[in-house]
């Protein structure tokens, strides 16, 4: 199991950052996809921007973007009147065979 999945199981969203060219590497990989150097794993900001959304059975799902580059799909909870570009907070993440990201408004 790689570091990304290990940390996600513990509720931490981490990503590799290249120790040489400082690139944030996504999707997660042990080697930088720019210069092939080793990455250092670090936590990703909990603040994300809403890129797009839809719903299924009144439950919203979305694409959210972290640190202006990392995009993931996740669930949106407890927000009415979603609009593209708004700020979301990653309130929960985990791994149950699939990566789980849950967004809310935060504090």
């Amino acid at each position: 199991m790689n570091k990304f999945e290990q940390e996600l199981r513990n509720g931490n969203f981490v990503c590799g950052e290249c120790s040489k060219c400082n690139k944030l590497v996504w999707p997660p990989s042990d080697l930088c996809n720019n210069c092939f150097n080793n990455v250092k794993w670090r936590p990703i900001s909990k603040i994300a921007k809403l890129v797009e959304f839809s719903s299924k059975n009144d439950e919203y799902f979305c694409i959210a973007e972290f640190e202006n580059q990392i995009r993931v799909m996740g669930k949106v909870e407890n927000i009415l009147n979603l609009h593209v570009g708004q700020t979301l907070t990653l309130v929960k993440c985990g791994f149950d065979g699939k990566e789980i990201f849950v967004f809310g408004l935060g504090d």
């Binding site: 839809s54 799909m73 669930k75 990201f101």
Partner: peptide
């Protein structure tokens, strides 16, 4: 494509299709 981590728990193609439609 189960490999795609960026799709989170929304691996099935109906979800990406819905994103294109919303946009």
């Amino acid at each position: 494509l189960d490999w795609d981590k960026s799709r989170g728990q929304y691996k099935h193609p109906i979800y990406w299709s819905s994103m294109f439609t919303s946009a």
